[in-house]
Amino acid sequence: MHLSPDEIIFWQYGVIKLNATIVFTWVLMAIMVLGAKLITRKLTTNLRRSRWQNLLEIIVTTIEQQIASIGLRQPRQYMGFLGTLFLFVAIANLCTIFPGYEPPTGSLSTTLALALCVFIAVPLFGIRKNGVKAYLASYMQPVWMMLPFNIISELSRTLALAVRLFGNIMSGSMILAILLVISPFVFPLVMTALGLLTGMVQAYILFVLAAVYIAAATQTATQLNTPDPSPVTEKRPLPKP
């Protein structure tokens, strides 16, 4: 039993190695890209469209709505990053139903990589929206003495993102493996279903938290102190991690 798919190494040359995390990530990437390519190859703009196109449109529009509901006024600007984050984690977790599959999200390296992407993307979106000075000034809100605490908050939440996702997925896989040993048949099936639910919830949590961080970074200091006069959509309460 492996704690992380990183330990499953197919090929290695020095520090360069192909472990299960990278391989399954490529497989997922291939599936997602090829599927998107195949489906979007025959897109129609009229009222009659295929069910696969309908499925993709539902997914894309739902993600847009969720981004907008969090407070980002132009959701298409963040659709690439946030949508990919959600879809990758969700599909990686959903594929646990296939035997022999090791979810890349069960690797702390993957979750840390995603958290680092969020950690880097948040200030990039904030600077692009408000500029460097305004973004850096947000670290001294509400008073300058909050600067170290804000920095610690940035680092800790990135670590929390990585560890939360890794812990949930890894624990789910570990529990399932243990249950398969002690009680095969029915109970592992239930735990698999529970693992699918947990994986979807974790994907949603990662997506929402990243969106919230980006939304907080893109808001100016004035906007932070005053309520939004005209929200695009109704804001829903943030889910608790």
Binding site: D6, V15, I16, K17, N19, T21, I22, T25, W26, M29, M32, V33, A36, K37, T40, L56, V60, R76, M79, G80, F81, G83, T84, L85, L87, F88, P104, S107, S109, T110, L112, A113, L114, L116, C117
Partner: peptide, 22 residues
Amino acid sequence: FTVSAQIINFLLLVWLLKRFLY
């Protein structure tokens, strides 16, 4: 190394999905 590769993979996936999906 895996972290770096996964970062690259994720960014590549972002670009691909933008290109072929979104």
